[in-house]
């Protein structure tokens, strides 16, 4: 039986949620499970090109722990998932429009394309949807 695709709708700009999204996406992708991530709302601000950790993240007590103890960087985890597994990254078209951004404003070599919510949800009918 083929592995059920995992769809992650990443909305939160909170570091801890972006971190678990990156961990989940990377591990699922390298476990032969297709993963699709749509980044939107505050989350997309952490994917701005040129932003550097730790300033790209805002979070609470666990964010501080992640940074102080040098846990794997969330954005880099998405990159590893793409490099080593089957991970597709989408930037939300609405978020880009509101920010007056295009794909050039986002972390390089990470996003595959801009996508609307309707298409993402339609595709997600064939898999498991997780919202963070």
């Amino acid at each position: 039986m083929a592995n059920q695709p995992l769809f992650i709708l990443l909305c939160s700009g909170t570091h801890e949620k972006i971190q678990i999204a990156g961990m989940t996406a990377a591990v699922a992708a390298v476990s032969e499970r297709p993963v699709y991530v749509l980044v939107t709302m505050n989350a997309i601000l952490s994917f701005k090109k040129g932003a550097e950790s730790p300033r790209r993240y805002t979070g609470g007590a666990f964010s501080k722990l992640l940074l102080d103890k040098k846990a794997p960087d969330a954005i880099e985890l998405f990159g590893q998932g793409k490099m080593l597994g089957d991970l597709t990254m989408y930037a939300c078209t609405m978020a880009l429009d509101l920010l007056e951004w295009d794909m050039n404003n986002l972390t390089e070599d990470l996003f595959d394309e801009a996508l609307g919510l309707t298409k993402f949800l339609s595709d997600a009918e064939d898999g498991q949807l997780m919202t963070l």
């Binding site: 961990m23 591990v27 040098k70 846990a71 794997p72 590893q80 490099m83």
Partner: peptide, 16 residues
């Protein structure tokens, strides 16, 4: 000293 999922990802990269 590496935290999850660092060791796993390193193994996967090496296996490639």
């Amino acid at each position: 000293g590496a935290f999850c999922p660092g060791p796993l990802m390193e193994v996967i990269a090496a296996l490639k």
